[in-house]
Amino acid sequence: MKQKNWAVEGYHTVAWLVAFIKKYLNIDVDSSLFLFVNQSFSPSPDHTLSSLHQCFTTSDKLVIHYSTTNAWG
């Protein structure tokens, strides 16, 4: 991604974020995309971004990595 930092509404879910990234990167909707919070765990698709932000922020930022293969966990 050219833009490294994004501001999104907290009510969005992890599933929404996966769909957004797939669309942004032109990844086929049937392909897998994995998200990892702080390079340690993969949140469930129904978690909201605000709940993840409240629990796992560092320096007031929620760091989420993505991969097309299951890199962690």
Rank of each mutant, 00 (worst) to 15 (best):
V14H: 04
K4W: 02
S31E: 12
L52A: 05
Q39N: 10
L25C: 10
I21G: 09
S42L: 05
L49S: 07
D30N: 09
P45N: 02
A15I: 00
S40F: 05
Q54L: 15
F20V: 05
L35P: 02
A15K: 12
F56N: 11
V18D: 00
K4M: 07
W6K: 06
S51K: 07
T48P: 02
Q54Y: 10
Y24S: 15
N26T: 09
Q3L: 12
T13D: 01
S31Q: 13
Q3F: 08
F41S: 09
S67P: 04
T48G: 06
L49T: 01
V63C: 14
S32T: 14
L17D: 03
W16K: 02
K4N: 08
W6R: 02
L17W: 04
T69N: 11
L49A: 04
H53E: 09
L52D: 06
K2G: 12
K23W: 04
D28L: 06
V63P: 06
L33Y: 01
L35A: 03
L25P: 02
S40W: 04
L49N: 06
C55G: 08
A7N: 11
S59I: 07
L17G: 01
N38T: 02
A19M: 07
P45I: 01
A15G: 04
W72F: 13
A71T: 15
T13G: 05
I64F: 08
T57G: 01
A19S: 13
K4T: 11
D30Y: 08
V63N: 14
F34W: 12
S67A: 15
H12T: 00
F41P: 13
S40T: 08
S42M: 11
T57N: 13
I21V: 14
S42K: 09
V8S: 04
A19I: 02
S50V: 11
Q39T: 02
G73Y: 06
S50D: 10
T69M: 12
Y24K: 12
S42Y: 03
P45M: 00
K22D: 01
V14Q: 02
I21W: 02
Y66T: 12
T58V: 11
F34R: 03
L33R: 00
W16P: 03
Q54K: 12
Q3H: 06
D30M: 06
T57L: 06
T57K: 10
S50N: 11
F36G: 05
S44K: 13
C55L: 15
P45Q: 04
S31P: 00
T57E: 12
M1Q: 08
S50Q: 14
H47A: 10
W72L: 09
S59C: 15
K2E: 14
H65F: 15
M1V: 12
F34V: 13
H12K: 09
Q39P: 00
S59E: 14
N38M: 01
I21N: 04
E9Y: 07
S50G: 06
T58S: 13
L49F: 07
D30L: 05
Y24N: 08
W16Y: 11
Y11R: 13
T69P: 04
S32W: 02
Q39Y: 06
F36I: 03
T48L: 03
W72G: 04
K22R: 05
W72R: 04
H65R: 15
Q3C: 03
T57W: 02
Y11G: 12
N26G: 05
K61G: 06
M1P: 05
S32P: 01
H65V: 12
K61C: 11
L35E: 03
L52N: 00
T68K: 15
S31I: 08
F41I: 03
F34C: 07
